[in-house]
């Protein structure tokens, strides 16, 4: 019986991810869905009055932006605690005495929260879909789901940022840093354009560097377009998905590099 167990690298990641998802559920993180559904129901009922017949675009704008906002909250505040809470509560001790490497743990925790966000985002997407069908905006559903997918990608990047900061900093500081990255990541392309329009060569260089180092979160903004029922071409979706995967891989490698060298006092 002693060596009857057969596992590979991915099994343990999967087991840890599953547990991280269970943790999120038990910590009642998905309760935010209730608030979201109430918000959307209220919007679907009352927006017709307030927007003079523009409820379709308003529900799309409101719903999609709320998905991002709620998701960003979860990604930041749960993300920074993913690893640091386990260190602080000493739950890592037993884990790392098992055949689990630091990288497996880190990736597993990351995927667990990503799965949580996927479920959260998907349920909210369904909520927006129902609200849209109610107000007669069924023709925009394809665009809405593209935008939901983009929001999910953005949240994955944000989670990776949070976990990277928390691999070497305190949760409070990590949350603050991650929030800054969220802000800068959205502004970097605007800032770069701004600098290109009227800045000096130095400013152009600085903002150009920031633009490429920081996650370019404005890439994921497809929410205003979704309200028009627009669709991106397949190449754009492929490029943005590729960008996301590569960026997350880089972040997790950095996080793993730091985390693998940490002493758990």
């Amino acid at each position: 019986m002693r060596r009857s167990s057969n596992t590979n690298y991915l099994t343990q990641i999967f087991v840890i991810a599953k547990n991280a998802f269970r943790e999120a559920v038990r910590d009642r993180i998905l309760y935010n869905l209730v608030i979201f559904v109430l918000l959307l129901t209220g919007a679907a009922i009352f927006l017709g009055e307030l927007t003079a017949g523009q409820e379709v675009r308003t529900i799309i704008n409101l719903g999609l932006n709320a998905i991002l906002l709620f998701g960003a909250f979860i990604a930041i505040f749960v993300g920074v605690g993913l690893v640091s809470k386990e260190i602080e509560k000493r739950t890592v001790y037993a884990i790392f005495a098992k055949p689990v490497t630091r990288s497996q743990f880190l990736v597993g925790k990351y995927l667990g929260l990503s799965l949580t966000l996927l479920v959260n985002t998907a349920v909210m997407g369904i909520g927006v879909t129902l609200a849209l069908l109610y107000v007669g905006g069924g023709d925009r559903l394809a665009s809405v789901w593209v935008a939901v997918f983009f929001v999910f990608l953005e949240l994955c990047v944000l989670t990776a940022v949070a976990i990277t900061f928390s691999s070497f900093s305190t949760p409070a500081l990590s949350a603050l840093f991650t929030f800054f990255i969220f802000v800068i990541g959205h502004f970097s392309s605007s800032l770069r354009e701004f600098a290109a329009a009227l800045g000096s060569a130095g400013a152009k260089a600085v903002f150009g560097t920031i633009y490429y180092i920081m996650p370019n979160l404005s890439l994921y903004g497809f929410r205003t377009q979704a309200a028009y029922g627009l669709l991106p071409d397949a190449a754009a979706v492929a490029a943005i998905t590729g960008y996301t995967i590569v960026y997350i891989a880089i972040l997790l490698s950095i996080a793993n590099f730091i985390f693998s060298r940490r002493n758990f006092k």
Partner: peptide, 15 residues
């Protein structure tokens, strides 16, 4: 460019 991609939503608010 500074509202986290929520331009459409803010436009709705102005509307």
């Amino acid at each position: 460019g500074f509202v986290f991609g929520a331009e459409g939503l803010i436009a709705d608010v102005y509307w």
